[in-house]
Simulated scan of single mutants.
Amino acid sequence: MFNVEMYQGKKEKNYELVQKQLFALIEDEPNQIANLSNAAALLNQFLVEINWVGFYLLEEGQLVLGPFQGLPACVRIPMGKGVCGTSAATKKTLRVDDVHQFPGHIACDAASRSEIVIPLMKEGKLIGVLDIDSPITNRFDEVDQQGLEKFADILTKRL
């Protein structure tokens, strides 16, 4: 019989492990592109049921594509547009269970069904977002959100 509490506990432990792996990968590396690239690759390997993971970086008032894993993506996203732009503008994590129900969703990959976007904050300022898409609806939950927010916090300390 499937035990949700046991699964959630394991999921939390898995996030702790990937956070430790991230720290080990980036602790002595000052290069932003190298750290973002390794972070995207680590999440791509770690997360199941995703089809895109990567970063958009704030540049001259808009989000510009950074290191990622997945199909080619939208290069520029205006602040306040789509899930990424909305997350960036509000500086809040957005978990979208069905992207087709999100007003103004920007479809870079037609296979995407759900999405989570975590703002990257450094010294109180937005520097970009972590964007993860899944080909299934309702992919991301509170445990994912907490684990990915902690991952983003570790990462931004080295950016």
Results as ranks from 00 to 15, higher is better:
residue 102 F to I: 04
residue 156 T to E: 03
residue 46 F to L: 12
residue 46 F to Q: 09
residue 50 I to D: 02
residue 107 A to N: 11
residue 54 G to E: 01
residue 156 T to N: 02
residue 37 S to Q: 14
residue 5 E to T: 13
residue 123 E to C: 04
residue 58 L to N: 09
residue 61 G to A: 09
residue 63 L to H: 04
residue 148 L to A: 08
residue 112 S to L: 03
residue 124 G to S: 06
residue 154 I to E: 06
residue 32 Q to L: 12
residue 7 Y to P: 05
residue 23 F to I: 08
residue 105 H to E: 05
residue 113 R to E: 14
residue 5 E to S: 13
residue 130 L to G: 00
residue 64 V to W: 02
residue 78 P to R: 07
residue 44 N to S: 15
residue 103 P to Y: 02
residue 86 T to S: 13
residue 139 R to I: 08
residue 145 Q to E: 15
residue 10 K to M: 13
residue 71 L to V: 12
residue 135 P to I: 04
residue 3 N to V: 12
residue 28 D to A: 10
residue 92 K to R: 13
residue 11 K to L: 11
residue 144 D to K: 03
residue 114 S to A: 07
residue 58 L to Q: 09
residue 15 Y to A: 06
residue 59 E to Q: 15
residue 64 V to R: 11
residue 94 L to A: 03
residue 21 Q to I: 10
residue 118 I to H: 01
residue 14 N to F: 10
residue 117 V to T: 05
residue 99 V to S: 07
residue 10 K to G: 05
residue 95 R to G: 02
residue 27 E to H: 14
residue 19 Q to I: 14
residue 12 E to A: 15
residue 51 N to V: 10
residue 113 R to P: 05
residue 156 T to I: 09
residue 142 E to V: 12
residue 114 S to I: 08
residue 50 I to S: 02
residue 24 A to C: 11
residue 55 F to T: 01
residue 130 L to A: 00
residue 77 I to W: 01
residue 82 G to E: 03
residue 96 V to E: 01
residue 47 L to V: 10
residue 118 I to Q: 00
residue 91 K to W: 08
residue 126 L to T: 07
residue 92 K to D: 05
residue 30 P to H: 05
residue 72 P to Y: 10
residue 114 S to G: 12
residue 146 Q to S: 13
residue 9 G to T: 13
residue 41 A to W: 06
residue 97 D to N: 14
residue 102 F to D: 04
residue 145 Q to A: 12
residue 9 G to Q: 15
residue 113 R to F: 02
residue 17 L to C: 09
residue 128 G to H: 01
residue 129 V to Y: 00
residue 1 M to A: 13
residue 96 V to G: 01
residue 53 V to E: 00
residue 21 Q to F: 09
residue 97 D to W: 01
residue 48 V to C: 07
residue 37 S to H: 05
residue 87 S to T: 07
residue 96 V to P: 02
residue 100 H to M: 15
residue 129 V to M: 01
residue 3 N to R: 13
residue 44 N to L: 05
residue 79 M to E: 06
residue 124 G to A: 07
residue 138 N to F: 10
residue 36 L to T: 00
residue 45 Q to D: 15
residue 140 F to L: 08
residue 143 V to Q: 04
residue 110 A to D: 14
residue 62 Q to K: 15
residue 118 I to R: 00
residue 10 K to S: 06
residue 129 V to I: 07
residue 136 I to C: 08
residue 24 A to W: 12
residue 69 Q to I: 13
residue 126 L to K: 04
residue 87 S to D: 03
residue 80 G to R: 11
residue 34 A to E: 14
residue 56 Y to P: 05
residue 137 T to C: 14
residue 101 Q to I: 10
residue 148 L to T: 07
residue 64 V to N: 09
residue 81 K to M: 11
residue 59 E to I: 08
residue 143 V to L: 09
residue 97 D to K: 12
residue 121 M to S: 06
residue 156 T to W: 01
residue 36 L to Y: 00
residue 59 E to A: 10
residue 13 K to P: 03
